[in-house]
């Protein structure tokens, strides 16, 4: 656990804040399971700019819960304490199918330029790695009105055999959840997918939106990253929204809120060790006095 001092915000807090900013007030949104950054983003949104958010918690299907702390397992009574009411699995997915789920949050071990995700398997013909699976992501990638994609592992790592393993890939080995186009170029609409698809892809290196063609487009970087770093860690070429902005960082009050919501710092488990050490000066940062 790393606790940033003073008014500095950690990378995890910055990611939570940035995901929270994609959440509109007055909508119904759902976080799945195994996604502490998103769980916290919804709670931050609800307690700041989106008080009328209908927050549906993953795994418990609790509506507007007030967890005393974040647990590392989503289907725990911790996570549905003081909920206003409870849904069940069919009611949440029916809401989505009927177009009432405005925003969903999805991630993947592979993410391509169109926002297709793979959480099922690595290896196209021969299975190299069985992933846990996508839960309801396949259904909700179609049915939710909008999608926020995220990953805290954009940075390509060595596979131990001299090659680099990318998270943002040229092509997914399996499409668990559909983005804007199939690999053969067919559009969502052409495939009969009703929702509008991903409008954000937030990573620990930068923030993408999606252009009119449905292609991921770099829009923001962090204070310690730049366009070249993002490019070097992405397997596909991408357009850039010039000028690339610096990602807005959370005010100190939001960092305090996140620390109170997640005293066990469960969200840092989504981050790699080196990323847990990254921190930034928030917008209301006051330099410490040095002797």
């Amino acid at each position: 656990m790393t606790e940033p001092r003073g008014n500095r915000c950690s990378l995890g807090e910055a990611l939570i804040y940035r995901i929270a900013r994609t959440i509109e007030d007055g909508i119904l949104a759902f976080h799945g399971f195994g996604s502490p950054l998103v769980q916290l983003a919804l709670h931050v949104a609800k307690r700041t700019h989106a008080p009328n958010l209908v927050l549906v918690a993953g795994a418990t299907y609790a509506v507007n819960p007030m967890p005393p702390f974040l647990a590392p397992t989503s289907n725990d009574w911790v996570m549905d304490r003081d909920a206003e009411c409870q849904l069940d699995i069919e009611e949440l997915f029916d809401l989505a199918a009927a177009g009432r789920l405005e925003r969903m949050f999805l991630s993947g071990l592979q993410i391509d330029r169109w926002g297709n995700l793979n959480t099922t398997r690595l290896g196209v013909d021969a299975l190299k790695l069985k992933l846990p699976g996508g839960g309801g992501g396949c259904n909700l990638a179609c049915d939710a009105r909008h999608l926020t994609l995220w990953t805290a592992a954009h940075r390509a790592v060595s596979d131990g055999r001299g090659a680099r393993r990318f998270r943002l890939v040229e092509r997914c080995d399996f499409i668990t959840s559909s983005g804007h186009r199939a690999a053969d170029g067919r559009t969502r609409k052409g495939m009969g997918l009703v929702g509008n698809g991903p409008d954000w892809l937030i990573t620990e290196l930068g923030v993408f939106d999606f252009d009119a063609a449905g292609h991921a487009r770099l829009r923001e970087v962090f204070p310690d990253t730049d366009t070249e770093l993002v490019r070097a860690n992405t397997a596909f070429e991408f357009p850039i929204s010039e000028p690339v902005a610096t990602t807005p960082l959370p005010p100190a009050a939001v960092c305090e809120l996140i620390r109170s919501l997640d005293p066990l710092r469960i969200h840092e488990r989504e981050l790699r060790t080196e990323d847990r050490l990254r921190s930034f000066s928030g917008p209301d940062f006051r330099p410490e006095r040095h002797a």
Binding site: C138, N139, C142, I175, S177, S178, L193
Partner: peptide, 10 residues
Amino acid sequence: PIRSVKGSGF
């Protein structure tokens, strides 16, 4: 019937 799954590996 469902609307989803189209376009996926499922």
